[in-house]
């Protein structure tokens, strides 16, 4: 770990951990000079990513995503609503991002994290504008009943790149979602037909949908957050890196590499636009990785 340096540098006399805490920026810049990050990654590489579908039994669709130690649990519960007059044949998606106090020492009960509503808004903008889900698929009976998909994402462990992990878990939860078999009863309410008495219950009312439906997902969005510092671009920052360096750029591309969203939330200005190009290139590579991870998770699920 001992990187030799000039004679007037404190780092030669100090323990690595103490130096890291006292001079975090210099600690990181020393690493950047060697094109390496404190956790051993090259600058452009994201952390190990895992995805598990169906983590929550009480939900209609769910997924747990882990990027490094950042962990997100997303679950969808389907409820029935009366569609609005403007869109009588469309359902609705409500997305909420939560940061419970368990996820980070910075969040305390009663004092919610400031970033949570920001990420919540960003997520619903991204998912709804990407056109991944056709809201018409959520229609049950035109003008009378439609599905309301409540997607709740919980951050279980916050270690940077929260939006990326949250979006991945959200997308995976939608690909795991199974819409239950329901029918319209005489009171005009939607009821679930249980699987075991399917044969016997058929005669009471024709079901609206014959079997469990999976949504057809078009152009699934994936994202990568990068930290820009001087001439360096660091993909998928940890919370330590996020707290030290100031310029972030989140790029969202869909599965055909079309740009869905580009977000730079303030911070110092960019010196050159080629940095943005580089971020997009990194995101393209990342989208390929994430697509593979999602497909593997889906096929693992089907084998079980």
């Amino acid at each position: 770990m001992a990187v030799t340096s000039g004679p007037n540098d404190l780092s030669s006399e100090m323990e690595v951990d103490a130096f890291r805490r006292l001079f975090p920026l210099r600690f990181h810049e020393r690493h950047l000079l060697e094109s390496l990050r404190p956790d051993g990654r090259p600058l452009g590489r994201a952390r190990d990513t895992t995805l598990m579908l169906g983590a929550v039994a009480s939900a209609n669709g769910s997924a747990m995503a882990k990027i490094g130690s950042t962990t997100m649990l997303a679950a969808i519960k389907m409820e029935v609503m009366t569609p609005t007059a403007e869109a009588p044949d469309e359902g609705c998606i409500a997305i909420e991002f939560h940061m419970p106090p368990i996820c980070s020492p910075l969040v305390r009960p009663g004092r919610p994290a400031e970033v949570a509503p920001v990420i919540s808004k960003q997520l619903s903008d991204t998912i709804l504008s990407s056109g991944m889900i056709d809201l018409k698929e959520l229609c049950l009976v035109g003008g009378k009943a439609a599905w309301m998909a409540y997607l709740d994402i919980y951050c279980l462990d916050a270690d940077g790149a929260l939006f990326d992990a949250a979006l991945l878990s959200a997308v995976a939860a939608f690909s795991h979602l199974q819409i239950p078999v329901v029918s319209l009863n005489d009171d005009g309410r939607i009821v679930i037909i249980s699987e075991d008495n399917n044969g016997g219950a058929m005669k009471e009312k024709e079901p609206v949908n014959k079997e469990k439906i999976k949504l057809k997902l078009k152009s699934v969005p994936f994202s990568l957050t990068c930290v820009l510092h001087k001439k360096y671009i660091l993909a998928d920052p940890t919370s330590e890196e996020e707290s030290i360096m100031e310029t972030f750029l989140t790029v969202v591309l869909d599965s055909s590499f079309q740009l869905v969203s580009l977000n730079k939330p303030g911070g110092p200005g960019l010196t050159n636009s080629s940095a943005i190009q580089d971020c997009v290139t990194l995101t393209r590579q990342r989208v390929k990785e994430l697509q593979k991870i999602l497909n593997e998770a889906i096929s693992d699920m089907e084998v079980d």
């Binding site: 409820e79 029935v80 609503m81 009366t82 609005t84 609705c92 409500a94 009821v191 679930i192």
Partner: peptide
Amino acid sequence: MAGKSGSTPATYSPSLS
């Protein structure tokens, strides 16, 4: 859609028939 209509429409969870 969550932001499209200002108020969230009342929803219910379908019960078992």
